[in-house]
Every structure is written in structure tokens, then in C-alpha cells.
Design a protein around this nucleic acid. Structure first.
Lengths: 359, 359
DNA sequence: TTGTAAGCGTTATCAG
DNA sequence: CTGATAACGCTTACAA
């Protein structure tokens, strides 16, 4: 799009009628040149195009939608944009959507099933082209709708449609391997809310890695709570009082890990010297904690990106069987994990406590 | 399309026609009971209402909008939802909007004037009820439009419409007072991008407070850069090499402050013992840094909240003169500021600032 | 109080 | 290739 010749600042809405009149053609012809579906004589096409440019005409999306029975709106229902995990998901969706000229209708359902269903229902009255949903924890709805929908992040058990999720199990497994390779054998777990299926997977993956190294975790080393920092603090405190004290803690979310970090400090211990911490999420603030957190990074932007791609394919007619895309996680090594004291790690020449400075 | 006596799950769209037929009334009557503007005999009203409930009818927002020339859509154009400052602004807008049954169309303009204008223009084709805009840095557009618009966070110089902003100057001033009362007389400033007007105000407010205490800041103690962590690091490094070394640093954003924190550590200094840091924004991660940052908190949620209130008032007919709401900031005292070494702090016989400290 | 009918700005179907 | 004309689903005078 290059710069325009003149400023068409005609304020009152300009419609196809205005174009038709100015170009001295009929309404239908204007429509034809706009949609390019029916061919139009070049001279006429030009006249119409000029009128459009001169008057700064934009097709009214509403009437168009009403007529064609489809908008270019994508409804996006998420738990809460203030939860730092979601903004990049939303951005991933928007970037893809924008390129295909879809617009995003954003709804925060607060993990509240009622609110989620209300939004979902309400959204229908806008005739969206499709919906991207991060289902609430206890999502039950198997919605049959007039438009495609893809579930992301969490996949409800009864959901048979498209979905994009993350390898939670494998991420947990990677965390477990990392810890056991460094020699940890007494490991505490901050699991968070048990009803969240993603968390369960993370912990199961972790457990698998541990048991492969002959490490077992008795139940008092697994603490359930909320996803937040405060809960992480409280639960970590309980872990730190256990005997033997865990040499490492796995936190199923970054926020819990931050709480755990605080708990370690409050216990006059040092992370990672006394207690290592590995977390799950990879939010940006994990770089700012002290020490910076080693964590399993979720590809949040990609989550939205892939979902939008998939959804738009569906909107544009892809009728292949449901797809279930599962995205990889990544182990990001920072400063919060080291070998436990007294463990002779061959590779421990690396200095752990160095705070990574931005380069 | 077989008529059902059963609970609605009728998938194909159900329209007013269906209701009219089932309730054995005319289209107009259905409309009347829905909009409650024209009175309808109770018996009929009930029949219609039943039909609506039984069929699970929802009015089509698009056709309604087309007819009434107004949607219940609010367009929100922001720089970038991934910037941690904006999610709560968006949430503030959405909470208010939702209660008045408006929906949010979210657009990320990336501080790019072209993109911003493209979005703004594009939004018009949805006939939004109103727009909330966080203008790009070099926003020039004085848009005359068919619907109300309120600018938030930054107020473009030529913008004569409604706006909601933050007391940047006063916030900077409070930061300055806090520092001077504690005895700081050599103060470094991380100003960030000079073209951002909010930053200018913050620094001017700071300067005023300093000069009121007879503290002057020579130019090499003022570093410009970007808003981000990396820039904060680099610029703070320069400050820390100055002689005399500043005993305190003011960062115009939290991210720069985080970079400064890293710079202090990298210089083998300790915050706040050797260098105090006070920042501006109050994002949630400032609690997780080490030490936790003392900062001037912007009421980001309130920003969105107030803007939405204002906008909806306009949408609903408020034609009073343009309003310019300015929100207070708050000094949040954490651990990154103390009196400089060797300064005999007048003990708290006199409390420093009336700016409320959180408990 | 209720029904009728004319649009809102498009697209789509047919004639010319 | 171009132009009428009928929808799309709804609101709103105005008529009955």
C-alpha cells in the first residue's frame, strides 16, 4: 500500500450506491469489480475503481456478512488476558488472522464455565467465521455450531474437533531427566491444581523420568495448590521442612516457582546450592528472578499461531478429519538448577550462580 | 428444518421469522417484545417469549446493527498485547464493556503509525459503537468519525477529544521526592525513548523534585535508549562508570530498571546498598526481582476501566465537552531504595510522602 | 395492541 | 458484460 494522492475525508458513510452513481454504472457492476468474481470491461472497471478511491469507499462488513452469511471475525475465548501466559497466545492468533484479514473478538471467561458458555453462545450472534477457545478447566460443552472451532492449550476429554496443545508430558519428562542426570534423587513437586489436566501430564512425565532413574517420590513430596506465587510459597515451605529435604523442586508453573524461590530464601537456603528449582512455562519474567529460572518453555506464541492457521484452513473449506497438533516444549537452562551438594558431576566446571546479564 | 417441541439444540440459525411463526404473531410483534419499546398484550408477550426460549433464539447482531446503524462492538487499538503493561488495560476495558454488553475487537498496531491507521480505518467497516485507542508514538491523525473515540495512556498533542492518561509528571515528582528525602544527591536517569511524551513528563517531574532540593543533574547523568531491559543494562552501565557514581538511578520503565539491576550486579555492586533504583510502571514482575523494585505504579487496569466508562457514556449520548481524565500514580516502596551510604537519615520523625504506600 | 412494509448495504440470480 | 431485483435478519414508522 503506497501513499494516496488525495485525502478523501468524506465523513458520512459512503456506500456502493455512491460509487455506482459516480461511476455511472449499476450497483451490481460495482459489486462485480469489488469482488472480482465476474469479469468487467476494463474501462468500466477503471471508472469504478477510481470512484472507489476518490470517495474512499470501504465495503460495509456487516451488510456483506449478513448477505454472505459469514463474517471475517474470529472469536477468541480465553481464561484471562492478565495471566501472563495468554498474551502471546493471543498475539500468535492475531498475527495470522490479520494477514488473512480476519479480526479478533476477545473474551475473558475467567475459567468460569458459565461465563465461557455465555460468551460462546453470545458470539454466535455475530456469525463469526470461527472460534478459538482455551477451554475453562471443567469445560463440558461439545458445541455443535455453524462455524469451525479449535480448542487450544487444554483439550477437553470429550472434544473431538481440532486442537492445538503442548507436549506437557514430554516437557515434564525432560525436566525429570535434567534433574536426575545432575544427580538429584530427592525431589519435591509443586503440582498446582489437580483438576487441570495439563498439570497432571507434566507431573506424570516428570515421574516417568524419575522412575527410569530409580527415583521414587513419596506422596508428601507432592504438593497441590493453586497456580500462583503464594500457593507456590506455602507448598514449597512444606517441602523444605521434609526430611530428607528435597535437593530439587519441580514447579508446574513459573509463578509457583517464584513462590518457591521466595520460600527457599525465607528458609535461609540458597538456590541452587541447597535446592534446585525447575519450572514449567517459560514466561519472560523468569529471566529476572534471582537466580534466573531453569524451565520448560511452552511455545505460547506458536500455540496461537498454529491454531489460527488451522482454523482459517477450516474456514476456507478444509474438511479433512480433525487434527490434533501437539507442540514441542524446550528445556531452557538458566541458573536455578545445579547438581546437589556432594554429588560429583563431571561437567560441573560451569559456574552456576552467575546471573545472566543481557548481552 | 423440522419444527421441534424439544429443547432448542436447533443448529441452523433461528430467526425472528421462526419465532413469529411459532408464536403465531407477526414479525413486528416479535420485535416489539424483544425490544420492549412498544407495549404488547401480556398473553401475546408470553407466547412470544416462550417461542424464543423454546427455540433458543438470539437476535442477529449484524442485521440489527445494519438496521440501527450501530453495533455493540468496541474497537480497541493498542501497541502490543505482549507488552506486559497492556493486558490489564485491556481487561479494564473489557470488564466494563461486558457489563454493558459491548464486545471488544482487539488490534495490535505495534507502535506503527501505518498499521494503526490501517486498523482504525478498517475498523470503520464494522460500524463500531466506539473506539479506544492507545496512540502510536507519533500519532498524528485527528480522526473525525461517526463514532466516539477515546485516547488513553498517551494523549496526542493535537487530540481534542476525550482522553484518559496518567499523572506521569507527578509520578516522576514523587519518585524524586522519595530519593531526595532519603538523601540522594547524585542521581542517574534512564529516560528511554525521548520521543515518548510520557517519559518526558516523568523525567521532568523527577527533575522538578530534585531541583527543589537543590540537586542538579548534568547531562551525562541522563541516558536515553529504549524501554527495554537490554537498553536499561547498557545505559545503566554508563551511569555506573561516572564519577561521582550516582547513588540512585531513576528508570522510566520497569524493564529498564531490571536491566539496571543486572548492570549493578555485573559491576559487583549491591542494590540498594551501593545504588538505589526506583522505576516507573509497577508491573507484577517487580515483586520477583532481587531486590524487589521500589516503583511508581501506574493504574493500568483503571486506565482501561475509566476509558471504557467514558466511551460508553459517549456512545449512549453524553455530549458534554471533551473530558481529560488523569489518573493518579502511587509510590510503592519495596527493597531497591535506601539512603545512600554515609547519609544520616533523619529517622522517620517525618514521613516522606503522602503518596499512599501499599500495605 | 398488532400487522405491514420499507429499508440498512451487500451479494447473487437472472434477464437483457 | 451489465443492470434490475430479490434476499440476508432486523427495526420502525405507520396503518389497521
Amino acid at each position: 500500500m503506497s501513499s494516496k494522492k488525495e485525502i478523501p475525508e468524506q465523513v458520512g458513510r459512503v456506500t456502493m450506491h455512491d460509487i455506482a452513481r459516480r461511476a455511472e454504472v449499476s450497483l451490481g457492476t460495482v459489486s462485480h469489480v469489488i469482488n472480482g468474481k465476474v469479469s468487467v470491461r476494463e474501462a468500466v472497471r477503471l471508472r469504478v475503481q477510481n470512484a472507489i478511491d476518490e470517495l474512499g469507499y470501504q465495503p460495509n462488513q456487516l451488510s456483506r456478512a449478513l448477505r454472505t452469511n459469514r463474517t471475517n471475525l474470529i472469536g477468541m475465548v480465553i481464561p484471562d488476558i492478565m495471566n501472563p501466559f495468554f498474551p502471546s497466545v493471543v498475539r500468535g492468533v492475531e498475527d495470522v488472522a490479520f494477514r488473512s484479514s480476519y479480526r479478533i473478538l476477545l473474551c475473558n471467561a475467567d475459567n468460569d464455565l458459565e461465563k465461557e458458555m455465555a460468551y460462546l453462545n453470545d458470539l454466535r450472534s455475530f456469525m463469526p467465521a470461527g472460534i478459538i477457545l482455551i477451554p475453562s478447566i471443567d469445560h463440558k460443552l461439545s458445541l455443535k455450531s455453524d462455524f469451525p472451532m479449535v480448542c487450544i492449550d487444554r483439550r477437553p476429554p470429550d472434544w473431538v474437533g481440532d486442537s492445538v496443545t503442548v507436549e506437557n508430558f514430554e516437557g515434564g519428562y525432560a525436566a525429570g531427566k535434567h534433574l536426575t542426570h545432575l544427580g538429584h534423587r530427592t525431589i519435591g513437586i509443586l503440582r498446582g491444581p489437580t483438576q487441570v489436566v495439563t498439570v497432571g501430564d507434566r507431573v506424570r512425565g516428570l515421574m516417568k523420568a524419575l522412575s527410569e532413574s530409580g527415583v521414587s517420590v513419596s506422596s508428601e513430596y507432592v504438593q497441590d495448590g493453586q497456580f500462583d506465587q503464594e500457593s507456590g510459597y506455602t507448598c514449597a515451605m512444606r517441602l523444605l521442612r521434609l526430611i530428607p529435604r528435597p535437593t530439587a523442586i519441580f514447579a508446574a508453573s513459573d509463578l509457583m516457582a517464584v513462590g518457591a524461590l521466595a520460600a527457599v530464601k525465607a528458609s535461609k537456603l540458597i538456590c541452587p546450592r541447597d535446592v534446585s528449582i525447575v519450572s514449567f512455562d517459560g514466561l519472560s519474567f523468569t529471566d529476572f528472578t534471582d537466580p534466573a529460572l531453569t524451565c520448560i518453555v511452552q511455545p505460547s506464541y506458536q500455540l496461537g499461531h498454529a491454531a489460527a492457521r488451522l482454523l482459517i484452513d477450516r474456514i476456507e473449506g478444509d474438511t479433512s478429519p480433525s487434527r490434533h497438533i501437539v507442540l514441542r516444549t524446550e528445556l531452557r537452562i538458566r541458573d536455578s538448577v545445579q547438581s546437589p551438594e556432594g554429588f560429583l558431576a563431571q561437567t560441573s566446571s560451569k559456574r552456576q550462580l552467575r546471573h545472566s546479564a543481557p548481552s
